[in-house]
Design a protein around this nucleic acid. Sequence first.
DNA 1: AAGGACACGTTGTACGTATAACCTCGACGT
DNA 2: ACGTCGAGGTTATACGTACAACGTGTCCTT
Lengths: 367, 367
Amino acid sequence: MASTRRPGTEAEPRTGPSPGRSAAADPAAGASAGARPTSRDVARHANVSQATVSLVLGGKWQGRVSPGTAETVRSAARTLGYRPNLAARSLRLGRTRTALLVVPALTHDYFARVHTGASRVATEHDFGVVLYPSPEGTGPAVDPFGSARAALDGVIASSMAPEALAALRDGGQLPLVMLDSDPEGDRAAATVNLDIADGMHQAAAHLLGLGHRRIAHIAAAVDSWTFGVRARALARAVAGTAGRLVGTERSGLSVEDALEAATRALAARPRPTALICDDDLLAAGACKAARRLGLRVPEDVSVTGFDDLSLATALEPELTTVRLPAEEVGAEGMRALLAVLDGRRANSPVLPVQLVRRGSTAAPADA
Amino acid sequence: MASTRRPGTEAEPRTGPSPGRSAAADPAAGASAGARPTSRDVARHANVSQATVSLVLGGKWQGRVSPGTAETVRSAARTLGYRPNLAARSLRLGRTRTALLVVPALTHDYFARVHTGASRVATEHDFGVVLYPSPEGTGPAVDPFGSARAALDGVIASSMAPEALAALRDGGQLPLVMLDSDPEGDRAAATVNLDIADGMHQAAAHLLGLGHRRIAHIAAAVDSWTFGVRARALARAVAGTAGRLVGTERSGLSVEDALEAATRALAARPRPTALICDDDLLAAGACKAARRLGLRVPEDVSVTGFDDLSLATALEPELTTVRLPAEEVGAEGMRALLAVLDGRRANSPVLPVQLVRRGSTAAPADA
DNA sequence: AAGGACACGTTGTACGTATAACCTCGACGT
DNA sequence: ACGTCGAGGTTATACGTACAACGTGTCCTT
């Protein structure tokens, strides 16, 4: 009792002439081997209707199709190598199971990791991720929904500037999950944040505990929520202690820029004994600056980074830095988006961060 | 004579009942503001047929639609905020204008740059790129076409191992462009390669020219065409010169692994005076190893890298390395794929590479 | 004056899928 | 003997778009 044969399903009657299709255009037509099989081909092969194929392969056949027929259909699909046409499915369902991930720059290790995490969770849920390499060269007015070729179900945006965010929401009324962004400006359905303030507190406390009293801040000159938090948290962490913030130098997010900024910071007299940097890239530049001034790290000047990029352990000395669970941020962002799309209540976690003590910090010599 | 009014286009006669759609399901229905506008909405707004809208917005209206009507249509589309439904378009056209990019790991700067380049060219041609984070955690048998949710027009694969490549081609009969891969195994429609051999020759010649005679190779323990080329090219470059290859240590593609490998290489007696590394990450590890052994770079041992990652200039001393035009590789790959899809003849360029001399190499002390 | 030829649109499909609504049996209770 | 009911399917759409094929008036040629 493998399959229940039915009459009347053998010859698929074409409902009418099809003037819109010139079959003579394709010289290879006639042989059925060329084109990709459709659900109708599977149906023909299994002696059932296309609807049955859809039911079986869609998993909704319980009590509507007999187990034997279901297995026949699955087997036919397998032998034909059937893969559903995603465009057709998306058109029918109005959903694409694809999310847009907007990041400032994929070449920054942090965002690459965020992508990895988001992509992993997406794959687990049969979802896709398409990247939007954020408006750096093309100007800020690029429409993500124009350039992202895929139809989208939702958006995950990391470290978005406020104005870019506005453009995003205007472009499409899609569910939005924000990463590393101001949780107050809640145009988002959910937010995933890191406890950046705590990280900065840990870094500052670490330096203060070592005896540092003159600390300079190498700040990222990027208009992003996360860097604002870092500056404020550092100010608060130092306030009321024996230490002092003896300068803030703003720098672009590159080693070269940071080298210049740190050189300026180290020109102050009395010289700061520690540089607290907004990013590991900046910390790398700070180390270079120190050494060019004839100062040793950490003996003459301590340096801390932020993010714990792979760079942190490639440098020498290895960077003391604040480790951010980047992949987890991406993963949680995707989970939140999936929850929203399911109509479930998405939580907006704040993930903990952890100072990692390595070789770039030590007690100051003059303490 | 702005627009030619026509009778009979006012009331769009619904061709029949639509039992497949329960309008009562959506409580917000009735008001026309909720849903995304379709080309038919634009047509209604502009008093033309949907076909005309398609012609105008598709740009194929020359001589078929009057300029005035065309402008009316465009204006209507603008005010309604019309965006074509990509799923429907893909279904109709059988093409998606989306390419799959397969890379081993996006967290490696090189591949992030390849993606950037490919993505840039894609955007210029109104194409999309979806990433396939290659089978590292999930095992090598993952089907890229199952996990990539988008329907695809073609595939660009970088540094693919042979067996993974086979799985790729079995999965879908899509045009394939290979990057950094064996040009002989031409299952690909086109290949984009770097002149890796020349790069290795430049590095070796540089060291030999400085007077180095005992050179060790820190080789990447990755089964990839590009690393095979590096090893063979190095052997050839050194053969017949006053220099000698005094050891090859294989290492995983991480700083930690490279540290161990380089430590082994530097344990040889007489000690090599130069380490030539397959990758900047490995070079970073080599520098760490040297310093832990009390050796200075470059005074006691010279180190060269490969790729010119951002890491190269973050280190101190900055790495002498072979610069690879990563973005250009991605861009050329996408151009080649677009050419193939257009039915044009795609060329398979071999891009030049350039040694960048920095601080990690110098003449040996004992020369 | 007749017959194109052209400009400017329109009507009608089909792409492949998912599902609502319908149909056809055999079994079963009364 | 006959309605009824459920199991196990089928038939008929519609999603939104891009054309192929087919009208219309209008002007120009012969």
